[in-house]
Design a protein around this nucleic acid. Structure first.
Lengths: 206, 206
DNA sequence: GTCTATAAGAAGATAGAC
DNA sequence: GTCTATCTTCTTATAGAC
């Protein structure tokens, strides 16, 4: 990887651990294996590094959203996929979403950085909301909506049902971010959450 | 209020808005209406101010927890209160919890400060977890458990049912923290959440 | 307890050699 | 592109008068 990009990666790691203000340009340089002044040949200031991270994330985010919306548009075709949904599939849906966001290195670091920096920067707060609240709710709302139409789930209010599906996932994610040693306990609770969700919203009640 | 305590309050306000590292001793002094060096007659360092805030919060938190556990111990007596629970009561329970945490000035500022500083300080991460995850879950689990015993709610798993009740409240709280203009929209969703929760867990299904 | 003056040191950024 | 040396500014903290 070229130096310019390695600077971005090391900076993101440090920012996610200590926050922008607590990371010194010399810290970033050291991780990259150069001296601080050399870093200014690649970026004109510390803030420029931060901005580049945000910009990179925004483009990744747009790609992701675009990909999802493409799948969403072909919902008619995908609906087939959801006709024969089982509890196993629902568990998989929740668990995959949870583990991807939890373990994906880039996601994890970026989420932590956003968490730390959000209150000093309204744009970042909006980005956080999009990535971890509004977009998951809209995407999962679409999927769960299909499951309602295919008769696998039953509800009068898909929006609230989606909230009931996703909010526990979100909360358990924030727990693991803060204390990774609680991951095992949390995964068990996640499974029980989804099973109960299925019991409660599934068309066939026991 | 004496100067020593006013320093604590102004510091908390600033820390919650910009984070510890971005607040200068002179900023705090200015808010208090004195010069920076005078501040050192009250606290021996900037860090000491931060520590005093944490300590003050810890004692408030202990009091609160103690009060709740006292009520919890007298659960037998309180159970009467929950025998004639209605949907109105459940709505009130959720809304009051939500609005207290959202609007109480001290809580709001402290929560924001914890959010910003948690990743640099494992103790703060633990405090955050206690205040906004574990304690609410345990307290509300106790209340909802009573409602199950009194026959108002029905479930095989009180822990997961409590997660279903509280996780949406928690998530909507983080939304309002980040964007207060979404409060109205959020309160509506909160009410619908609780109504649907009642529909889904209430003993008498429609 | 509050002030002015100032020390001490940290951190971002630049200059110019290689 | 990387380095050493250095500048500048900002920030915490102290000294000592009132």
């Amino acid at each position: 990887m070229d130096t310019k990009h390695r600077i971005l990666n090391e900076a993101l790691t440090l920012f996610s651990e200590k926050g922008y203000a607590n990371v010194y340009v010399s810290d970033i340089a050291e991780k990259v294996g150069i001296k601080a002044p050399s870093l200014y040949k690649h970026y004109k200031s510390k803030r420029a590094i931060f901005d580049a991270i945000i910009e990179e994330m925004n483009s990744k985010f747009s790609e992701q959203a675009k990909a999802l919306s493409v799948n969403g548009t072909s919902a008619g075709a995908d609906a087939e996929l959801y006709k024969n949904m089982s509890e196993e599939h629902l568990l998989k849906l929740g668990r995959e979403f949870f583990l991807f966001f939890l373990h994906d290195d880039y996601n994890r670091k970026f989420r932590k950085m956003l968490t730390i920096e959000q209150f000093g920067n309204p744009e970042l707060a909006e980005t956080y909301m999009n990535m971890y609240v509004d977009m998951p709710l809209s995407y999962q709302g679409m999927l769960l909506g299909m499951l309602v139409q295919s008769g696998f789930l039953k509800t009068d209010n898909v929006q609230v049902m989606t909230l009931h599906f996703y909010a526990p996932i979100y909360m358990l994610l924030t727990v693991c971010d803060r204390d990774p040693s609680r991951e095992e306990e949390t995964l068990k609770l996640l499974d029980e959450h989804i099973k109960q969700f299925n019991r409660v919203y599934g068309r066939t009640k026991e």
